[in-house]
Design a protein around this nucleic acid. Structure first.
Lengths: 225, 225
DNA sequence: ACTGTTAAGTTATCACCGTCAACTTATGAT
DNA sequence: ATCATAAGTTGACGGTGATAACTTAACAGT
C-alpha cells in the first residue's frame, strides 16, 4: 500500500531518532522514562484518536527510545494502557470536583457533575472509551489493588446521594444502588453519544439536562407516597 | 511464550486442514461460503470472548478455507465484523419483539423490552460490545445504507413511546427524544454491567426493574403539572 | 583513578496479524 | 471436448506485541 513511501518516511524518522537520542536516565531515575511513556501514550491516544494508534513502537519512538525499553517499565501493553486509564480516571474525578465546587444544593451538585461527566467523555472520547468500554483482562481495581467503591469518584457521588437521602429527596436505603443507577444513566448517555453520534441527538447540553432531570424525578418518586 | 508447543499445535491443525478440505462451492454459490464465514466469525466471538480472537486466519481455518478466501466475500476485516454486527442487531430486535409479544400495556411493553435488552447484552457480551462499544470507522447505517431511525429496533420503540404519549403517560412532543433517553438508560446499565462487573451490583433483574421504573416515573413526571 | 555491580537501555528475532498480487483449478454453458 | 470464469490457493509484505541475549552508562567502595 505504501511500500516505497513508508520506507522513506521510516528512514527519515530513524534519522531524526539517531540525531536526537534520548539521554539515558541516571541510576535511580528509571521512573523518569515511565512518566515520559505515560505522557506520550496519552498524547498519542488523543492524536490518533484510537487505541490501535497507540502501539508500543509508536510510543517508544515518540519518547526517543527503543521498543523493548517500554517493557522495562510495563509488564505488557495492557499494563501501559491501564496506567493511562488510571490517570484519565483521576482527571475525571478532578473535573467532577471542580464542576460542583461551591455548590450547596446536593441535587444541583449531581446535575453539574452529570453534565461535567458527559462533557469530559465527549472531549476525550478515546480516553473515555478505554476506561469504560474496553474489555480489560483484569479490572483496574485489581491491578491497582483498589476497591472500586473506595474510588474518589464513587465516594464523592455516594456522599452527595446520602445528602439527598437525608433531605428526603431520594428514598432511604442502600445509597450504593442509587449511585449505580445514576452512574448508569450518565454512562449510558455519554457512551451512546460517543459510539452512535449519527443518531438524531438534540442539543447535547439540553438533552443531558433533560435526562438527568428525568433520573432525579424518577428517583425522588420512590420516596413519595 | 509457547514457541515449541504452538508449533506442534499449528502442525496438527494444518494436518486436519489438509485431511478435510472444504469442498469448493458451485458456480453461483459463492454466498454459501459467506454464510459459513459469518457463522464461524460469530461462533468464534462467543468462544474466544473477544474481538481479537476473531482473526481472519482463525475464521478461515474454522471454515476450512485459505485465509485470503475471506477477502472474496468481504472487503476487509472491518466489513466482516460489521456484517456480524448487523446480524446480532437483528437478533436483538427479534428478542425484543418476542419479549413483549401479546402484551398490551405500552408501559409494560417497555419494561419487558428493557429487561430483554439487558439480558441479551449479558448473554452475548462480546456481541453487544462490537455493536455498541466499538469505534467503527463507518457506522452500520452508512455501510448498509440505512437511516438508523428507520431501524426495526428504533421504530418499535418509537411506536410504543407514541402509545404512551397518547395515553398521557409520557409528555407530548418529540417521541424520538424520549426513545433516545430510554435507550441511553438501558444501554448505560447493560454496558456498565458488562465492562464493570466487579462493581457492587445488586440482583441484576431486580435492579434493572428498579432503573426502568425510575426512568418511567421520571419521564411521566414531565407530563404532570 | 580504578573497578565491579547493576540499572537502563539496545539488537536481533519470534510468532501472529491484516492484506494483496499472482497463480491454479473446478464448474457449467456452449 | 472446450473454454471462460467463479472460486478458490500460494507466497509474500509490512506492521504488531513480546522476549532473550547483549551492551553501556552511572555510581559506590576501595
Amino acid at each position: 500500500m505504501k511500500s516505497k513511501i513508508s520506507h522513506n518516511v521510516q528512514y527519515a524518522i530513524e534519522n531524526v531518532k539517531l540525531a536526537r537520542p534520548r539521554k539515558r536516565a541516571a541510576k535511580g531515575d528509571g521512573l523518569l522514562l515511565k512518566r515520559e511513556i505515560l505522557d506520550a501514550a496519552a498524547e498519542l491516544l488523543t492524536q490518533t484518536g484510537s487505541e490501535e494508534g497507540v502501539s508500543i513502537r509508536a510510543v517508544a519512538e515518540k519518547v526517543g527510545v527503543s521498543t523493548p525499553a517500554i517493557y522495562i517499565h510495563f509488564r505488557d501493553k495492557e499494563s501501559m494502557i491501564m496506567a493511562v486509564c488510571m490517570e484519565v480516571f483521576n482527571e475525571l474525578d478532578r473535573r467532577l470536583e471542580v464542576a460542583s465546587s461551591g455548590v450547596d444544593d446536593p441535587v444541583e451538585v449531581l446535575r453539574k457533575q452529570g453534565i461535567a461527566y458527559v462533557r469530559f467523555a465527549l472531549e476525550r472520547p478515546e480516553h473515555y472509551r478505554i476506561v469504560f468500554m474496553r474489555r480489560s483482562a483484569t479490572p483496574l481495581s485489581e491491578v491497582y489493588d483498589i476497591d472500586p467503591v473506595s474510588t474518589n469518584v464513587f465516594q464523592r457521588l455516594l456522599a452527595t446521594v446520602h445528602q439527598c437521602q437525608d433531605m428526603g429527596i431520594f428514598p432511604p436505603g442502600d445509597g450504593i444502588q442509587i449511585v449505580l443507577a445514576l452512574w448508569s444513566v450518565a454512562h449510558g448517555l455519554a457512551s451512546l453519544l460517543i459510539t452512535k453520534p449519527y443518531l438524531p441527538w438534540p442539543d447535547i447540553e439540553e438533552f443531558a439536562d433533560l435526562i438527568f432531570k428525568m433520573a432525579r424525578l424518577g428517583m425522588s418518586a420512590f420516596s413519595e407516597p
